[in-house]
Design a protein around this nucleic acid. Structure first.
Length: 465
RNA sequence: GUCCCCAUCGUCUAGCCUGGUCCAGGACACCGGCCUUUCACGCCGGCGACAGGGGUUCGAAUCCCCUUGGGGACGCCA
């Protein structure tokens, strides 16, 4: 087989949503897996709705997800000359013709067809009129009246469409611009796209597009129509289902790798495996195991996968992503040993990076603010002696490591007669302000000796006040 | 209205193509327990599905038909 060339063609009429990302992912994965090429094309022929901002956010989202492209972005609005060239060919060969019917007239035709219990269609009125180009003429493709067009689809199998169900659709508007179905086909032909994975809302467009390939004598690509992603109520994903854009998921503290893992797994499977690292996805992805039925977006599953990715990613790499969320909390941190140590203590107990950033906050504070209940329960004069000892011993040890710290705890337990829990919990409040934190030793280590001692002293002051 | 697609636990899915190893496996969520210095992680267990009806067959989640349900498309949008 020749080099696989896939593409992702978003229209810049809004942010990049989850369903779009998923099809982008399938195409990207397939290209990467086969060492092929992945082309990015912006379908901006709808002048009224396309915006530069949308293009920017789409590009940003793809970059955040780590979906890179080998060619493009191409813009359809810059390719009108190419489309016109092909439209001219189609006109010359008689495969297309000018039509002067007004929108009102065409509407009437549709109503008429509907009344007869048929699919609403243009009736081919201008087909044999041999009209010349004029101000208000559009160009239509002459489609066959009989026979069937069979879409061979790698995920759905064969689907036959009666040609009588396909009307002479418009390929060029009266203002001279190309319509979607034509632009897509011309682009795919000229860009050498040979594998097209897209949402199954396009399945109905496919026979139309095949007719254009045929009229041009071009080779057909491989088609694969994947089911759409539905909201939790089984309806089409829309704003009322909450977060839709990729950027929102970034803000909610999801890792790009988790996002990718979840989205690919939604509609594709590799036996029972749920967790995939990025490279593993590229290695194992295939077209054979794409599902045929629509699936619903489940945030819970995304969250759990995110937690697993947080656990399975190095602190150093995690830090790059966490800094963004720390910054959102007003914490200026760097990707250094300290932050990496902090992360290590938080990895098993964070489901999102937002959780992690919040839980990490106390490490960076200069002064701890004590939770009222926690302080009332644990910071009282009974433990003054213990805190004094802790501050002193910790300050004195030669090596600030787990072994030494454990020894100190043993010593304090002996000297005070307190059980481990009676020491750990007040200390926890002294150091973090609350009763909830990572394990006492790992936290002590991540905090560092200086902060630890200072905080214990501050707690002593607090009790004495 | 017409055409098209789809149908396994609440959700994501394995199994379906190449019928028997499936009184249907995994994961998320939920519930219980264990572990334990708090919170988590982890571990163990539980709950829970082949949409319905007809065929074909010795045998069907798997093949065929119908019904029902869900989704999509019918634009000088993409």
């Amino acid at each position: 087989m020749d080099t696989i060339i896939t593409r992702f063609p978003p229209s810049p009429t809004g942010y990049l949503h989850i369903g779009g990302v998923r099809t982008a992912l399938f195409n990207w994965l397939y290209a990467r897996k086969t060492k092929g090429k992945f082309v990015l094309r912006i379908e901006d022929t709808d002048a009224a709705r396309s915006t530069k901002e949308s293009v920017d956010t789409i590009l940003e989202s793809l970059e955040w997800l780590g979906i890179d492209w080998d060619e493009g972005p191409y813009f359809q609005t810059e390719r009108y000359d190419i489309y016109n060239e092909y439209i001219k060919k189609l006109l010359e060969s008689g495969a297309a013709y000018y039509c002067s019917c007004t929108p009102d007239e065409v509407n009437a035709m549709r109503e008429e067809a509907k009344a007869k219990g048929q699919k609403p269609m243009y009736n081919g009125k201008c087909r044999a009129r041999n009209l010349e180009k004029a101000d208000n003429t559009v160009v239509r493709l002459k489609t066959p009246d009989t026979g069937v067009t069979i879409v061979k689809d790698v995920v759905k199998g064969d689907t036959a469409f009666q040609n009588s169900e396909i009307d002479d659709f418009i390929i060029q508007r009266s203002d001279g611009s190309a319509m979607y179905n034509l632009a897509v086909v011309i682009d795919d032909i000229t860009m050498g796209i040979n594998t097209i994975i897209r949402g199954d809302d396009h399945l109905i467009n496919t026979p139309k597009q095949m007719l254009i390939y045929e009229a041009l004598g071009a080779d057909l690509p491989v088609f694969g129509h994947v089911p759409m992603v539905l909201g939790a109520d089984k309806s089409r994903l829309s704003k009322r289902h909450g977060a839709m854009s990729v950027g929102e998921y970034k803000n909610m503290g999801f890792l790009p790798d988790a996002m990718i893992n979840y989205l690919v797994r939604l509609g594709w499977s590799h036996g029972d495996q749920e967790f995939f690292k990025r490279d593993e996805l590229i290695e194992k992805f295939d077209l054979e195991h794409l599902g045929r039925s629509a699936s619903m977006f489940d945030t819970n599953k995304l969250i759990s996968l995110n937690a697993k990715h947080i656990q399975g990613t190095s602190p150093e790499e995690l830090a790059d992503h966490l800094l963004f969320h720390l910054n959102n909390l007003g914490i200026k941190a760097k990707n250094d040993k300290f932050t990496q140590g902090v992360i290590e203590t938080l990895q098993p107990r964070s489901k999102t990076l937002v959780d992690m950033a919040k839980a990490a906050e106390f490490y960076y504070l200069n002064e701890i603010e004590f939770d009222e209940k926690a302080a009332a329960k644990f910071l009282n004069s009974d433990i003054l002696d213990m805190l004094e000892k802790a501050a002193g011993y910790i300050d004195d040890i030669k090596e600030y490591n787990q072994e030494e710290l454990e020894n100190i705890f043993k010593q304090i337990m002996e000297e005070t007669g307190l059980k481990f829990g009676k020491i750990a919990q007040p200390l926890r409040v002294a150091l973090t302000g609350t009763t909830i934190s990572p394990g006492i030793f790992e936290m002590l280590l991540a905090l560092g000796r200086e902060k630890t001692v200072n905080r214990i002293k501050a707690a002593i002051k607090f009790i004495n006040a």
